[in-house]
Design a protein around this nucleic acid. Structure first.
Length: 694
DNA sequence: CTGTTGAAATTTTTT
DNA sequence: ATTTCAACAG
């Protein structure tokens, strides 16, 4: 055995046989079916390290993940492994201490969209794409769609034409599912079928407009990447560059993404995909569980390795989760098992209403916290972003820190979008969306004038000076001059980025106060944006990041959070994918919320909601609570079909409920504190802080 | 053509 | 509760 292989063995020690097989697999395409909590991340990280240690150049590895954070974490772990490998060698006196071992930092890692952006910048010319394109996020795309929709006179119809969001959904679906409009309308958007001709016209105009503006939307990023791979030279070049391609969360890729992978690795050479069909939850984004289920069919010499040993949850939780998912119709059969002790059975807790639910959850959280489980190690999960509203209010009232994932993001708030629009317009004067966003903020300018000014600007090839030829109504003259000065200054690019943001902020602040309620908080956000800007070298990169990898919550923006800052996590189930906590609370587990009423129209829809519920349950390591309000007062619930008397989710029929303890908040003893799992660390308790509040 | 007002419709998950 | 649309006044 060579020295290197001895060291490699040392690193593989911590893995179980299936994981090891997955890490060291060499021949042909590989599918790793990794159940929840089966050490998927560890396996992938080891595989990356193993490939590099085996001599694969890091820059020849492509790692596709669902979020930027996932990629960063994986590469960080791979790096630690490589370092250990290197140190191990040095200890044995055989390593060459003068040369640092290879690092994983040069691995191409990120989301499909981020990687597509990078590649298109580099090679896009081959398919006639100008490399300085900008990227529209979802809202920008909708806005552009709306512009075109209005231009074509579709907004003013006797019968209601689909809204911009719906139009975008249909368009996106067609691109990502590689589906024709007619078929898409027939199968997924029946209510819009009468508008077939108009939609076709709309989409063609939308595509033209994007081209004229030199912008790509999310769908284009994938579509153009796909196209790039179809180009003879460029495609071959990229294929040669990526000897090894690893795809995480394969169950949540769509058909277009699968085709990209296919073009990247014909016959599956060097391909590893990892996923869990039981956790496929993104079909609304045209993801299809077929990709993973039919992987062995598309790649006939594929090896399938299943990871079933769960390192996360207690047996009691696993049993309950297994029972829930066993209601699914089609899947790779796997039964998760664990060495962990039986543990407390998960609870189903009936609550009076939303507020009672919030109070129960908070009391439990505090109790766990007292027995040594920090807030950080607990999370509340829910189907829809607004489900946490009552809880958020109560947490704020009690001064308990929390951090919410999912729902509206920082960069999606109107004022942040406004500020970024100034920068984007400077970056790309053809950016109609940004122009139409900014200009009507000024007094005396409405949508029509904004369009005219943008047309002028494009005619003048982006020279903002043409705007001086227009004389606005006299009360707006001063502001107008300031705007043109500002835009010229920004466009010249002579200032560092953070001063550019500062300039915009100074100009924009009074407009903000004139246009929005509660300006204080918004102004503070803008200050934060200026701090963020100072971390970027160039404007283009910042704008790209904001479109493709936006910070998932305001906390992420404030730089590194303070180390001992303890906060509770609130998250949509979708955003909780891949994460885990000691104690998990799944709230609003009523029929109509889980499954969401929006999804119950079709069998597949319901099936996906079941998987979603499964994902939520399998986030828990030791304690799991599913809470069910038995009454809703608020108006949203009545829209959800039930007249104030919601039922327990259909995913917990009696046979499954046997794996749960049933509780009712009205009958709950106060002293049912959970048993501590660990010795108690800090004695500083939130409960005491809370009591001081009264 | 802009800006305001009131009525009506719509309400998931996210790169 | 929020967003979108139509109608109307300046």
């Amino acid at each position: 055995m060579t020295a290197v292989s001895v060291r490699l063995e040392g690193i593989l020690e911590s893995l179980n046989p299936q994981q090891r097989q997955a890490v060291t697999h060499t021949a042909g395409p590989l599918l790793i079916v990794a159940g929840a909590g089966t050490g998927k991340t560890a396996t992938l990280a080891h595989r990356v390290a193993w490939l590099i240690a085996g001599g694969v150049e890091p820059s020849h590895i492509l790692l596709l993940t669902f979020t930027r954070r996932a990629a960063a974490e994986l590469l960080h772990r791979a790096d630690l492994l490589l370092r250990r490998l290197y140190e191990l060698g040095a200890e044995q006196g055989r390593g060459d201490t003068s040369t640092p071992g290879p690092r994983s930092t040069k691995v191409w890692g990120g989301t499909f969209h981020a990687v597509a952006t990078r590649l298109l910048r580099q090679y896009g010319k081959a398919i006639g794409l100008s490399p300085d394109f900008s990227v529209l996020d979802r809202t920008d795309s909708e806005d552009l769609m709306n512009v075109v929709r209005t231009e074509l006179g579709l907004a003013k119809n006797q019968k209601r034409f689909p809204k911009k969001g719906a139009c975008m959904d249909i368009y996106s679906w067609c691109v990502n599912a590689r589906d024709g409009l007619e078929n898409a309308l027939a199968t997924h958007f029946k209510w819009c079928a009468p508008w077939h001709a108009e939609l076709k016209q709309l989409f063609e105009a939308y595509v033209d407009r994007k081209e004229a503006m030199n912008v790509l939307d999310y769908d284009d990023l994938l579509l153009f990447w796909h196209g790039l791979l179809g180009h003879e030279q460029a495609g071959e070049h990229i294929r040669r560059q990526f000897q090894c391609v690893l795809v995480d969360e394969y169950q949540d890729t769509n058909r277009l993404q699968a085709e990209i992978i296919y073009r990247l690795c014909p016959e599956g050479r060097g391909l590893t995909v990892v996923g869990d069909d039981a956790q496929s939850i993104y079909s609304f984004r045209a993801a299809t569980v077929r990709n993973i289920l039919e992987f062995p069919k598309h790649y006939p010499d594929a090896t399938v390795i299943t990871l079933e040993k769960n390192y996360r949850s207690t047996m009691a939780i696993l049993q309950a989760a297994n029972k829930v998912i066993s209601q699914a119709r089609e899947r790779f059969t796997k039964n998760l098992w664990s060495d962990r002790k039986q543990g407390q059975r998960p609870w189903v807790v009936y609550c009076e209403d939303d507020y009672d639910q919030a109070n129960f959850v908070i009391e439990r959280i505090l109790a766990h916290r007292e027995s040594g489980i920090d807030l950080r190690r607990q999370a509340v999960l829910f189907r829809a972003s607004y489900h946490s509203m009552a809880l958020e209010a109560e947490l704020s009232r009690r001064d308990i820190p929390f951090h919410k994932y999912g729902g509206l993001k920082f960069v999606e708030t109107a004022h942040v979008k406004d500020l970024l629009a100034f920068l984007r317009l400077a970056e790309n004067p053809k950016d109609l969306v940004s122009g139409i966003r900014i200009l009507p903020l000024l007094p005396g300018i409405g949508p029509a004038k904004a369009r005219k000014l943008m047309d002028q600007l494009v005619q003048a090839e982006g020279k903002f000076a043409v705007w001086r030829t227009w004389t606005p109504p006299c009360e707006a003259a001063q502001t107008w001059k300031e705007l043109v000065d500002l835009m010229e200054s920004l466009a010249s690019g002579s200032q560092p980025l953070s001063s550019q943001v500062h300039q915009v902020r100074v100009f924009y602040a009074p407009l903000l106060e004139a246009n929005y309620d509660y300006p204080q908080g918004r102004l503070r956000d803008l200050e934060q944006l200026e701090i963020i800007a100072s971390r970027y070298r160039n404007r283009q990169q910042m704008l790209l990041d904001m479109a493709i990898d936006p910070p998932s919550s305001t906390q992420d923006l404030a730089g590194k959070p303070v180390q001992d800052d303890d906060y509770l996590v609130l998250s949509t189930i979708h955003s909780a994918k891949g994460l885990e906590w000691d104690a998990v609370y799944v709230i609003h587990a009523t029929d109509g919320n889980i499954p969401s009423d929006m999804a119950t129209g079709s069998a597949e829809g319901v099936e996906e909601e079941l998987r979603l519920f499964y994902v939520a349950l399998t986030r828990a390591k030791s304690w799991l609570y599913v809470t069910v309000p038995t009454r809703y007062y608020t108006s949203w619930s009545s829209y959800h079909g039930q007249f104030g008397l919601p039922q327990l989710t259909r995913f917990l029929p009696d046979s499954v409920l046997q794996s749960f303890e049933i509780r009712n908040t009205a009958l709950l003893d106060d002293d049912q504190t959970p048993e501590p799992e660990l010795s108690i660390g800090s004695t500083r308790t939130v409960r005491q802080r809370t009591k001081n509040f009264f």
